[in-house]
């Protein structure tokens, strides 16, 4: 029991970590920012690819299918290395010199697998809408793009929301990979703190803290996704 109170005593690991907390939170904020941006960009990419996968003509469908499979099956860390090393750290646009900071590269890196997964989610969602809807829309003289946007997508969105939420959870967790390529997110900051404080008893609580942060953010979203899935009662995936 005294071990428990020792945890919070001054001079303990907890007390040493406390002043670092704002920095750790700030680092975690970067994780969340990366996840949000890559999710948005990935959604755009994925909707495009997913729509293309449903095209009638093979010329549009096959490249989209290939890219989707390619993006989905590549390890996220490998893609991150790829983007990190192959994107220049600054580019010249007309007369402007644009710096591309590491964390933006991380955003772009994560956009790729997100795009692949969203593409499949979209394809699954569109497939779940019965073909009779397409026929009815055609009979009412909707063109293919109009049909997609106004008739099919609204129905498919319900099907697509829970997997998208689960994907977002995965993305948030994947932002930790940016640590390996040096982005100043929460894992990197934790490592910096540990190398500064050099107390061996600090390692477990410090990394434990990162786990708690991720859990506190991801778990509620995951629960909500599951609840929505149950309430909307979509069948086995």
């Amino acid at each position: 029991m005294s071990a428990l109170t020792d945890v919070f005593a001054p001079g303990s690991a907890f007390a040493t970590l406390l002043p670092w907390l704002p920095l750790v939170i700030k680092g975690f904020g970067l994780n969340l920012l990366i996840s949000a941006l890559s999710m948005v960009l990935g959604l755009l990419l994925g909707v495009l690819l997913g729509g293309m996968q449903m095209a009638q003509t093979g010329v549009i469908r096959w490249p989209a299918r290939f890219l989707t499979l390619f993006f989905r099956n590549s390890p996220w860390l490998v893609i991150m290395f790829y983007v990190m090393f192959l994107l220049p750290f600054e580019i010249h646009l007309a007369s402007f010199l644009v710096r591309i900071p590491d964390w933006i590269k991380a955003v772009l890196a994560l956009t790729i697998p997100v795009g692949g997964y969203v593409s499949e989610i979209v394809r699954g969602g569109l497939k779940s809408v019965p073909t009779t809807q397409w026929e009815a829309a055609g009979a009412l003289a909707f063109g293919p793009v109009s049909t997609l946007l106004k008739i099919i997508l609204p129905q498919a969105v319900r099907q697509m929301l829970p997997p998208t939420m689960n994907l977002y959870c995965s993305v948030v967790m994947a932002t930790s990979l940016a640590n390996i390529v040096g982005v100043q997110e929460v894992m990197t900051i934790t490592q910096t703190i540990l190398s500064t404080e050099t107390r061996p008893g600090l390692i477990l609580p410090a990394y434990g803290l990162t786990l708690v942060l991720f859990f506190a953010y991801v778990f509620p979203i995951s629960l909500l996704a599951r609840r929505l899935e149950r309430v909307w009662q979509f069948g086995a995936h």
Binding site: M173, S176, L177, L194, Y207, T210, L211, F214, F215, F219
Partner: peptide, 15 residues
């Protein structure tokens, strides 16, 4: 399921 694999690995290995 709701924490990153990398963070788990660091916790295990370094911690």
């Amino acid at each position: 399921r709701n924490t990153p694999g990398l963070a788990q690995l660091y916790f295990l290995f370094f911690g």
